[in-house]
Amino acid sequence: MSALADLFTGAMVVAGLFFFLAGTAGLLRFPDTLSRLHALTKADTLGLGLIVLGLMAQAPGPLAALKLLAIWLIALLSGAIAGQLIARAARDGRG
């Protein structure tokens, strides 16, 4: 059971890291603010979600697993809104 959980965690974290890598590559390579933002927010939200999912398999109890989930939800919320704010700033010529 624990070996299976470890395998799951490993796979999920590696997959999550891949999306982080892709997002960062987009941040560095894309030409303008909006497309950079697109790469970063999309890929990072998914990446973090996968890592959280992987770590939930290692959580000592359901409460700890819920805390991990809550972290992802808050990151989701603030990431989406921060993305909006940056995009607005870029549109208004402040980026």
């Binding site: 808050i74 919320l77 603030s78 809104i81 704010l85």
Partner: peptide, 15 residues
Amino acid sequence: PSPPLRLLARLLPPV
């Protein structure tokens, strides 16, 4: 204030 920020300021503080 921008609408998304207002939304965040309503949702986040209780948490």
